[in-house]
Design a protein around this nucleic acid. Structure first.
Length: 237
DNA sequence: GTCCGGAAGG
DNA sequence: CCTTCCGGAC
């Protein structure tokens, strides 16, 4: 009788090390395939051709409420009129509201203007990168703060808008109401970012939700995640 | 007509 | 937790 050694556990690394709610395999597959997909199919959008935090902020506030196709022309027009943070801060609020038309949700141009003023007064005419400072400003919630941090400052900061929520919920959770799992999805969004790649990964997430994993009629047959997606195939209504 | 959507305010 | 804001897509 061979005195077999007792291995209680093969590897403590496997399941309990990090408080991760996502398994290694799916996590790495998702990261790799998403970034690959983005390299191939990612969109060329104007705010991806600048590193000016002000311009990225403008784009994010516009995108909060409006689809990309409607934002693009207005983004150029608005920045033609207010090319810098200082230009916007110096403007009259009502002129900013007029420059916003017809994007809708008209409280937002006022807030964007007040953010510009506050940045000039309190933060040395720069957009702050600190999440608490960002979120202290009216008009910047957790999503927009994460977007500014990752897209303007290259930080590995998580984002969660309804697109990202839908994608992560479908791929990793499957059924149920995503809105009831908001805090868990925030944690997942953070956990999934490959170190140092917050910018590309988050941009990729947004594109993927907008192009493949759409709210209605998602393109599951072209989806690189379909072999492990918990929601595949999403029923078409 | 119905759905969609960030942030604020209730 | 729920509603409001505003315009467009379907």
């Amino acid at each position: 009788m061979a005195p077999a050694k007792n291995h209680k556990k093969k590897s403590s690394l496997k399941s309990s090390v990090s408080s991760s709610s996502i398994d290694r395999g799916p996590k790495r597959r998702f990261q790799n395939r998403l970034l690959k997909w983005y390299g191939e199919f990612g969109r060329d959008l104007p705010w991806r051709r600048t590193s000016d935090p002000y311009r990225i902020l403008v784009s994010e506030v516009m995108l909060q409420q409006t689809q990309v196709d409607r934002v693009v022309p207005k983004y150029h027009e608005f920045l033609g009129k207010y090319p810098t943070l200082l230009d916007l801060a110096a403007a009259k609020p009502d002129d900013v509201r007029k420059a916003w038309y017809p994007l809708g949700y008209n409280v937002r141009p006022y807030r964007l203007h007040s953010i510009a003023c506050e940045a000039v007064e309190k933060y040395g005419s720069t957009i702050p990168r600190d999440p608490a400072q960002l979120q202290s400003m009216k008009g910047i919630g957790r999503y927009t703060a994460g977007a500014v941090r990752s897209f303007a400052f290259n930080e590995d900061a998580p984002i969660l808008d309804t697109n990202v929520m839908r994608v992560l919920h479908r791929v990793f959770l499957g059924n149920g109401d995503p809105k009831k799992k908001t805090s868990r999805l925030w944690a997942m969004s953070e956990e999934l970012i490959p170190k140092g790649k917050g910018y590309d990964f988050n941009q990729a997430l947004m594109d993927f939700g907008a192009v493949v994993c759409t709210a209605r009629k998602p393109y599951c047959l072209f989806c690189p995640m379909r072999d492990f997606c918990q929601a595949f195939p999403v029923e078409i209504k």
